[in-house]
Amino acid sequence: MKLNRIVKKALTALAILLLFGLAKSPFENGLSRKLQEAKLIAPIPAGGLGGLIGQSTFLAVLGGLRPLVGIYTTLHAFDAWSFKEWDTVERDYAIITTLLPDDIDSWKTGAWHMAYNAAASELYDESVPPTVRKRNGRAWIIKGVEYLKKGIEQNPRSAVLQHELGDIYRQQLEEPCLAAKHYKLSMEGDYPKSFAQRFYAYSLARCPGREREAYDLLMRIYHDPEEKRTPSVIKRILELEEKLNIPAANRIPDPDPDLEILRRYPNAKLD
């Protein structure tokens, strides 16, 4: 008799909870959608972290401990970096940016590790032949580029990421046209760096077929009182004046900054 009463009560309680569940579901689902649209809760695709983290970590991520897992992985990546375990660094940053896709600094740091640190480590690895070193180093630079492109897909308005990509194309891959493209995109993004225009102009000056455009821009920068008349601006203008055969009367009066550098530092290496 008592057992019957307990079962009856348990079933009634379950029925109440089920009815409540039915009633609140549309509201809860609507709120969940709204929160995802407002980027307040991250939709985590089931396969998004597949293979990258263990089950317990995955549960922690779903259980509201995403930033803590992010911190742990950042520290893990730092540790891996100190031991030059580049594959671990790459995997850790893939996790970090999957967990925190809006964290621009993490995209930037991850790409920096790949395109600069890992690439340099491979390039100076004397245990392998120079040809292999070069190929391995380039592979890491390309990984850094691909990683940044994913970051840009997630954060299309980020001037910082476009600028970083421009830097890699300019410094690591020596692709001035692509560098110019990304510096230009960074100028159009959110919070562009004030020197982005100058960097755009420097890369444009080295991009075949766009010298005239670069010259006009550099001259605008040269005459703009708001802009810095840096030695690089002067140097590029002088180079373009030669290349474009600018009449002597229209040339700038400044001396070649490299001569001044060499006068001060005779052993300096100039590009």
């Binding site: 379950l14 089920l18 569940g21 579901s25 709120l31 407002a38 307040l40 809760i41 995403r66 964290d103």
Partner: peptide
């Protein structure tokens, strides 16, 4: 799915801490 609450909707703290703006209306709904 009906009986167990969806605790993920209360995880907004993660992204609010990251700098995402949250409206008073959303907080009221929560």
């Amino acid at each position: 799915v009906m009986i167990i609450p969806d605790f993920r909707v209360f995880n907004v703290a993660e992204n609010v801490v990251g700098g995402e703006p949250v409206s008073a209306a959303i907080m009221l709904s929560l």
